[in-house]
């Protein structure tokens, strides 16, 4: 098991190096001279040269790269041009909001899509099979921001069931004491039912938007792999041994069928982290995605770079977690590594 984790960590390192190089190259591809931008239109040649020396952009590329890496190692992501704030600090405060949203969305999609896929596979031709097929064809065509807006219209404007789609918490409530940064967990720890329910209400629509977006690939994969496994020889053996149908479906079929679904989850996460940005914009969610979008519009590059780097690191880490989860379930991977 430890060798599996070690191997996967080793495999993640080239990805991380690639990510660092690409984010560095993206900075250097910036049109124009950041020093000139910093100095303002009235600056003299000399002032610009001074700033350039301060920023280090007058040095050879390789020296700049070394500085970039050593800054990164110290957790330094530069400062925002527009606010002057430290990007690393801003991302750290905003990250829990994005993480909470993505994780709840992921949980929702697993809770919805996996049973859907299983039921569709075990009851072929039933209404749930047809629904799953329609959802998995139409679902991939839904632009995530469009789904979000439709949900807002129906649940906020029409039905009045959900609160105004702005932010993580009603403006009249104050955030729970910061422990994890996840409002649901912090509110639960503070035993504040009112804040917990309010935070949940704010969270449910954006999380559902993300879930609907990821529903199609996971439901489709669950259905397909469950169908394949159900016709496998070992399921026939389990049936012929008279094992109860719940035992056959859960212990024998599902645990095998879940393996390709876990693999799919890696791809889905890539889309989910991207979709997160759009959902944050629709719901004015104060996460790192909306932070990056604001900076993008202002051509403020440091926050965007910090955001891209954070997202990629997160994605590499999540993929690592997925690989390890796979190894935990599948002894063939665990033992042969």
């Amino acid at each position: 098991m430890f060798s599996l984790i070690f191997n996967r960590l080793m495999l993640a390192i080239p990805s991380l190096i690639g990510v660092v190089i690409v984010t560095f190259l993206l900075t250097r591809a910036l049109p124009g001279d950041p020093a000139a931008y910093f100095a303002g239109p009235a600056a003299t040649e000399q002032a610009i040269a001074e700033i350039r020396a301060k920023l280090g952009t007058d040095k050879p590329l390789i020296v700049q790269f070394g500085r970039y890496v050593s800054d990164l190692a110290r957790g330094e992501l530069g400062n925002s041009l527009t606010t002057g704030q430290s990007v690393a600090k801003e991302i750290a405060t905003r990250l829990p909001a994005s993480a909470e949203l993505t994780l709840i969305g992921l949980m929702l999609v697993v809770i919805l899509a996996v049973p859907m896929g299983i039921l569709a596979a075990t009851r072929p031709g039933s209404w749930i099979d047809h629904v799953t097929r329609i959802v998995s064809t139409a679902g991939v065509s839904l632009p995530v921001f469009f789904t979000g807006l439709l949900l807002v219209y129906v649940f906020y404007y029409r039905l009045g069931l959900s609160p105004s789609p702005v932010g993580r918490l009603d403006v009249f409530l104050s955030a729970p004491p910061h422990i994890t940064g996840f409002y649901l967990i912090d509110a639960a720890l503070a035993r504040d039912a009112e804040v917990f329910v309010a935070a949940l209400k704010q969270l449910i629509l954006p999380a559902l938007t993300l879930a609907i977006f990821a529903l199609a690939p996971i439901a489709r994969m669950t259905r397909a792999s469950m169908l394949a496994v159900l016709s496998a020889d070992f399921v026939r053996t389990a049936r012929a041994s008279g094992l109860s149908s719940s035992k056959v479906i859960v212990t024998y079929a599902f645990r095998n069928a879940v393996l390709p679904v876990i693999t799919t989850l890696g791809m889905v996460l890539s889309f989910l982290l991207g979709a997160n940005v759009l959902v944050e914009k629709v719901f004015a969610w104060p996460g790192i995605g909306s932070f990056a979008v604001e900076a993008l519009i202002a051509s403020d590059y440091a926050p965007v770079q910090g955001f891209v780097l954070t997202m990629a690191a997160l994605y590499v880490a999540l993929n690592l977690a997925i690989d390890i989860a796979y190894g935990l379930i599948d002894p063939r991977v665990r033992i042969s590594s």
Binding site: F234, T237, A238
Partner: peptide
């Protein structure tokens, strides 16, 4: 039938390697 299968009448198959659950 679920009571009978495995208790009164049991069955073995060809391809024993695929007839067993690979991850149990």
């Amino acid at each position: 039938m679920a009571e009978v299968r495995g208790r009164e009448v049991a069955m073995i198959f060809q391809n024993p390697r695929t007839a067993l659950n690979p991850i149990r």
